[in-house]
Nucleic acid binder design. Structure first.
Lengths: 203, 203, 203, 203
DNA sequence: TATGAATGAGGATTCATTCAT
DNA sequence: AATGAATGAATCCTCATTCAT
């Protein structure tokens, strides 16, 4: 009895099981049989819904990127000022949800593959470009073009660096700390890079 | 043929071949036979000098960390002031040598393993702690403890983030750009965090 | 092709091929690929049904012990007296089926492993204990406890020794000879160990 | 400096190390490097003194057989009567020295190979034939030919069976018990098989 | 839609053997 | 006489993929 509409359910089950497996078994020991067992399904199911293992891994990374993007878009929608938009980008990328062990293991593993997997590289590139675009757009409302570019580049690096240090440390990270450092960085940079005109007004 | 003194030569050959293989074939497709073929040796040689594949990978990551550490120590030795020491840390971690395709592939791959390989995690942790210690020590000569800690954390994150963005991008990165952003960050942070007393003196 | 009920068939095929390989190639040269080739199956099938080579070897030895035990139980079921039960134990352990070249090679090989393989040791121990228990039980119906113990120990040794000499000889053994020696031994021992009361009656 | 007369010393060292390795690592895990390491020598030495691994194993089994034969010959030399010669054969084959864990592991392992190694089979056959010859010779001084043959066959089986049960059991065996059973068997058999003439004398 | 039996290629590992010194 | 570096064949195991049902 071919149940209708199983596809999204099954895909979701398998993607979740993949993330769990990458975390628990490690990327190198993540196997189709391990994933399907975890999902309570048979091993053949992967070919059915994702063609092959590469397809499942790609879908998994895409899901991570989409979840993150969704969070970011929601926060941006609620942000009322350019400053708030920049803060939202920090808060989305360094949200608690990005620091769960499963998510950290998964992202770190995928990054380790990116240089040798064009499909994964593409997902990574698209997400990155969108975030840079958001950053730059907001920054340009506050700073001259060159300064805006510097701020965007600096913020992106800072966000990535903060996340990665915690992901590598393997300990229970405190996301709030990371966000605080990033917000502090943003404040200082904005103040330092703010147009002279604004500075002069203060005097 | 028990030629004496072959050990360091063979180990070096195999480690170099491992780095080359990770870059060219990808970490997942890096095999003992591929490595040994690249080194012009037989596959059994790996067991002879490193026990097993894990031992070779561990030695390879250690070599990367040691090379980097050596560069850092050399630059620190030539630095005459705390500010110069902080700059040296930037320059070592973001040196041109850290942006060759081989080195980027290798580090990124190892980072992808760190959460599931205690030996690799240890290498990573030791290097990281030393760098943080260097950063903190220099920062404390310029700033009050709390500010020094913030600066050190921020700089470490900025350095990692800048490096990683370029490693992930896969394009031919411009190390000098990364260094410039980092030095800019350092300058602004130092100015912003400098003790009020010093600021007041300037006025 | 998930044909149902293949498991017992496949397991049997592989176990039979293992016995054949031990006989023809020798235990040391018995390989998974040799076994599976003989069974007309692929090498991966062993992992599928027995996890690994050790599992297959264990199952093979267990099958030998179970076949032997089954023979013994059948003969015991048909034995009407204690004497007949003792004779049945001889006839089962020294049955023609125990002297085929394949069976002799297999048992001898497994015995050579027993001291270094706990799972094989366990199979061996369980079979041995059951046989000793059967022997002792029958002997106690005929003799005083101490004599019964001696008879049981002696018979077990005699049976093992007779079998093993022929297994080691490598020639075409005559099972009937072995059984005759064992039955002769049993008769003499019973007569010699019989309770004095019975002896006294004769005088 | 080619030391003279090293050959017997080295051969002995390697044979002893082989026995130790068979006991501790198991026959299947007995390797040339393991043996030579245990002997405090290099792995190449085996080729030097025994050509190859098979040669070393053969020499090792031969040594076991020769030690046993030597014990037997010594005891026979001290035996003053046919009965004493039969007892000596029991005592030599079931001497304490034959029940050390190392010796039991080694014999059992070699027996497991005998059916697939002509050289080992030959050593085994020669020892066995000599012992049978000794048994038969002594028995014929006491019994008519047919009875002598039966006694010899029975004694050989009994001796082998008693030894093997203990070797298989893996526990700490009590050699004295085995010898007592064998001597008991001998006594009963001699009494039962003794020529009628002798019997008549008793009446 | 879903299963899981079966395959067979791929790869890490082990190890006897060779041989220059 | 002795070493131990180096080889490469052999083998076990893993696992993605296929496919009949």
């Amino acid at each position: 009895m071919p149940k209708l509409g199983m596809q999204p359910i099954r895909r979701r089950q398998l993607i979740d099981a993949t993330i769990a497996s990458i975390h628990e078994d490690g990327f190198a020991h993540t196997t189709i049989s391990g994933i399907s067992r975890r999902a309570g399904l048979s091993s053949g199911i992967v070919a059915h819904y994702f063609d092959d293992k590469a397809g499942l891994l790609e879908a998994t990374m895409r899901k991570l990127a989409e979840d993150l993007r969704r969070q970011l878009v929601e926060r941006l929608a609620r942000a009322g000022s350019p400053e708030a938009r920049l803060a939202a980008i920090i808060d989305a990328n360094l949200a608690d949800a990005q620091f769960t062990p499963e998510i950290m293991s998964a992202w770190l593993s995928f990054w380790g593959q990116v240089r040798h997997s064009p499909p994964l590289a593409r997902i990574q590139r698209v997400y990155r470009q969108r975030m840079m675009s958001d950053l730059l757009h907001a920054a340009k409302l506050l700073l001259p073009p060159e300064s805006a570019r510097r701020l965007a580049a600096g913020m992106a690096a800072m966000i990535d660096g903060l996340w990665m240090q915690r992901a590598l440390a393997g300990e229970r990270a405190k996301p709030a700390d990371a966000r605080a450092v990033a917000h502090g960085y943003l404040a200082i940079q904005l103040a330092a890079l703010a147009p002279p005109a604004a500075n002069g007004a203060e005097t």
